[in-house]
Design a protein around this nucleic acid. Structure first.
Lengths: 340, 340
DNA sequence: GATTGGCACTCAGTCAGTGCGAGTGCTAAC
DNA sequence: GTTAGCACTCGCACTGACTGAGTGCCAATC
């Protein structure tokens, strides 16, 4: 069994290795930390940790570095969620303080997060699922082109251009607009979609195909879950930490340009709702990210819509700081978007 | 004076160096190309080219590589705009064939371009300047929160959430909506903004501040030129070509995350309208991109709105292919968006 | 005058050999 | 359980010799 001191040794190994990028040896531990015991004792502890596969030696005779399992224990039991520095808090305030539309807020959040953590930051768009339809607008762009705009009570807007099979006059359009709004206004997205699917046009029969087309486009807009969209920032940070990857970073860069992969990863990490979920190294192997760690946290937008944000970087990262940053930004974003 | 054959030598030096990443020597030239002269003659030509600073030797005794100036001559006089392969044409068709909204089209274009060129691709959002206002919609989100939606005839939509100082009933809102639409409907962006700035509320005096607030927000929306926005894809390609940069790629990655820089660069390259503009190596020094080349071309969206797209990569790149790809995507995009 | 063959010279890259030092593992003593 | 001592390992940095691609120049040739 690993003793308390052994765990303490693991902690300083993780901390020192993260700070210095160099395998840490027993001697440097007793130099830098006051354990009150000699290097030999530390060595015994390290032998224990190695037996448990919490640390490993890159070469036969060199310092030790944490394994994925070691990081896991560190994150689960040893990491103190270091509170953000005043400067960092300040950064969040000034960065997100000014109000703006959703796109803008998320774009700023992701940049902020990448600056706070020096890693690649990711923010998922909130799902539309729980919102209700506030308003539908139909705007003629030309004789046979129509812009349909769907507005939800959370203030989100989806637009789509529709090619009409035939000309529709302004008068009819007004009627259609009224009819559509009556059918969906105030309803939840699911209800609204159902209502649209069975919409019957009370006027001229010839217009039924037109209204069908519009309705199906709107259903499409409702279904166009922005949940499958995410924004990213700080790719440069990956290159800066290139030495932390045994191979090349380019497969990692490939993976993070493949949004689908990241979304699946985000999905699987959705267990822990408001805490920070951490997935380390080989745990991410199914996503082609076996040398990276991913920290995510959930945030809630208006209407209880849920999404995640997080950072991605080499397993050798400052978990304490990054977890705190992810949590702080998620909370701040929840507050900012929850106000609606 | 550099003879015709010398220029031909420059061409093959550029081509071979781009293909092999290795300095090319006189011997390998006569081996791979049928000049009908001996290596010694080629050497004389190369001495000429070196005198003109079109090629340079990395080490005293090694093959030669093109200088920035050499690439410039190559691009201006020697590059044949190699037509895209059928597979590439096919890719463009399938990638951009399906209709979708602007965001989606641009997102696809940028990915396509990065795949065709294996470089970082950039697409600027078209400016709103020449569009006219089609419609303004005001949607109450709560008692004191209002969503203002601005729709242009090019089918673009700008939204903004407004905090009202006081409650405004549905009736009044309808009047305001009508008033605003009357003031701006069908007008160009510039005219609409002017009209909004001087808008007087004919009803209750108490509501003047409210309409002022809404009007100023709308002016803001009009001014929110999306021209200052661009999308990027293929950052991974930069890392893959890392060896082509003498130093690190990380300053380059920094620069391309700084959208402002790229937009300024795009702005300065706006000379050549429909051709492909090329900026090579040190020509980009003011933007911190002195080891990269940028190829851009303009495209036109609906209403004559103009924007640029292009690729960015190491000076050692396949100019012929990339220029052709940039031009092809720009043309296709113009056709796709111009239809509106 | 352009082209060519010949030849000495340069220099980056590679590879093996060497010495150094940080760090371990083990054992015996405390 | 802790400590000191010591032999051993092995990555790393350094060195020096060697190789080969490639040049520059000159005299001969077309």
């Amino acid at each position: 069994m690993v003793s308390d001191r052994s765990l303490e040794v693991l902690r300083v190994i993780v901390q020192d290795y993260v700070a210095s990028r160099e395998p840490v040896g027993s001697k440097s531990i007793v130099e830098r930390h006051s354990f009150g015991v000699s290097a030999a004792t530390i060595r015994n502890d390290m032998a224990l940790l190695e037996e448990e596969e919490l640390i490993a030696a890159p070469h036969t005779s060199s310092g030790r570095i944490p394994t994925d399992k070691g990081y896991r224990v560190f994150v689960d039991h040893l990491a103190d969620l270091r509170p953000l520095s005043p400067a960092q808090r300040q950064a969040i305030e000034t960065f997100l303080g000014q109000s703006a539309d959703l796109d803008e807020v998320l774009a700023r959040s992701v940049r902020l997060l990448s600056q706070l953590t020096h890693q690649v930051a990711l923010v998922q768009y909130p799902s539309l699922s729980r919102a209700t339809v506030r308003h539908i607008e139909l705007v003629p762009l030309s004789d046979t082109r129509l812009l349909s705009v769907l507005i939800t009570d959370s203030g989100r807007v989806e637009q789509r251009v529709i090619e009409l099979p035939r000309f529709v006059d302004e008068q009819t359009l007004t009627e259609m607009r009224a009819r559509l709004n009556a059918a969906v206004g105030g309803r939840s997205m699911v209800e609204a979609a159902a209502s649209l699917r069975t919409l019957i046009w009370s006027g001229s029969h010839e217009l039924q195909p037109v209204i069908d087309l519009i309705a199906s486009t709107l259903v499409d807009q409702i279904g166009a879950n922005r949940h499958d969209k995410l924004v990213m920032a700080g790719a440069a940070n990956l290159v800066r930490t290139e030495e932390d990857f045994t191979g090349s970073v380019s497969p990692v860069l490939d993976a993070i340009e493949e949004q689908v992969v990241l979304l699946r990863l985000f999905g699987e990490m959705a267990t822990d709702l408001h805490g920070v979920a951490v997935s380390i190294g080989r745990e991410n192997a199914p996503f082609g990210l076996s040398e990276t760690s991913v920290l995510t946290s959930g945030y809630t937008a208006s209407g209880g819509d849920l999404a995640r944000l997080g950072v991605l970087g080499p397993t050798r990262m400052d978990y304490s700081n990054n977890m705190a940053a992810v949590r702080a930004v998620a909370r701040y974003l929840s507050r900012l978007l929850g106000e609606n």
